[in-house]
């Protein structure tokens, strides 16, 4: 099954798939911290189980960690108690700097293994009917963590061959981890490529899109190997936070079945720019609306988005990015209720 087939089937049934990027608020339900969940797969899976049982989304991802793969390569990462992890140093200046990282097996990293184990546990703990989602960082974004975003941006113009080499190395790391997530039972994998937001469409195609496409193909290949026995193929989503409106067509060309876009992007306009078999995933503001708004504001924002997307079957209601850990749970409930309450308007069926 492809993501568009699921989204369109729901639409034909007169409902929408609803899947906010929920991971972090799970800490409220288990009385834990983001840091504890990062390091403890049993707790992480329980936090996700609690979210799944309470909100019943159609798809649930584990907690987002953009620094995971970089940390597995030995880059220093800061893990605050209740915030996203951050990479503290970006040591790659030239191609030869990559040599030290080629000696490292990222899959031997304890946190990588913890996330693979979380995925295995999700398979046991999540109620049936909720798709299990995992994240991998995009190769271009991992290149940005290796080189530093500013250096990477400058290098896209001044040292394109260096960028290509670092992205190519990063692609290998991402693929290796992604394949393990597929083996562990991931049904959906979102590739997180936020650093690519600063690229022109042409530069995106050259430096990020090509590598993203290869990762997607590798994940699909891995899952079709597994599908012979399990009967399911992995679905892929490309996620870029921030204003990636200029990249929508280029993102769709990667072969991702879904594009997850942030609240800055006009999703209905994006729907007119992508093929009907590419699902748009988004894009309620995770902080101003979900985190800081009241239930009324959440309901209004969701209803407004549902109305704007009404003509488009290829849409999954979600948030623009991951929710802050302390997002009021009542807001998530309102989001789910408003999403579940949607009914297709007569005459809107492409």
């Amino acid at each position: 099954m492809r993501l568009d087939q699921l989204a369109v089937a729901a639409y034909r049934d007169g409902r929408r798939m609803v899947a906010p990027l929920l991971g972090y608020p799970g800490v409220q339900l288990t009385g834990s911290t983001i840091r504890q969940n990062t390091f403890n797969s049993e707790l992480h899976a329980r936090s996700l189980q609690a979210l799944a049982e309470r909100f019943r989304p159609d798809l649930l991802f584990f907690m987002m960690n953009l620094s995971l793969e970089a940390g597995a390569l030995g880059l220093p990462v800061r893990y605050p108690l209740q915030e996203s992890a951050s990479v503290e140093e970006h040591p790659v200046r030239r191609a030869s700097d990559l040599e030290q990282f080629r000696q490292i097996d990222p899959l031997a990293d304890a946190l990588i293994q913890a996330h693979i184990d979380t995925m295995r546990r999700m398979k046991d703990l999540l109620p049936a009917g909720i798709l299990r989602g995992g994240y991998v960082v995009g190769p271009f974004t991992l290149a940005g963590l290796l080189m530093g975003a500013t250096s990477l941006a400058l290098a896209t113009v001044e040292q394109p061959e260096l960028v290509t080499e670092v992205v190519e190395f990063a692609r290998g790391v991402v693929e290796a981890y992604g394949r393990e997530l597929v083996k562990a039972g991931a049904q959906v994998i979102a590739i997180l490529e936020p650093t690519a937001t600063f690229l022109s469409p042409a530069a995106f195609r050259k430096f990020a899109g090509r590598a993203d496409r290869q990762v997607i193909q590798a994940l699909q290949e891995e899952s079709s190997r597994k599908a012979a026995t399990a009967g399911e193929e992995v679905m892929t989503i490309l996620h870029i936070c921030g204003d990636a409106g200029h990249l929508v067509e280029a993102m769709a060309e990667t072969g991702a079945q879904g594009l997850s876009l942030d609240s800055d992007v006009d999703l209905a306009a994006a729907a007119r720019r992508v093929p009907a078999d590419v699902v748009l995933v988004g894009n309620i503001d995770p902080v101003a609306v979900m985190g800081a708004g009241d239930q009324e504001a959440v309901a209004a924002a969701v209803e407004h988005l549902l109305e704007a997307m009404d003509p488009y079957p290829n849409f999954i209601l979600s948030t623009g990015c991951d929710l802050p850990w302390n997002t009021p749970l009542a807001n998530v409930e309102t989001f789910m209720r408003a999403g579940r309450g949607w009914r297709r308007q007569a005459g809107h069926d492409k």
Partner: peptide, 10 residues
């Protein structure tokens, strides 16, 4: 990237 007018006002 994640900041917008609405958040700034809030």
């Amino acid at each position: 990237a994640p900041v917008n007018e609405r958040f700034a006002k809030e």
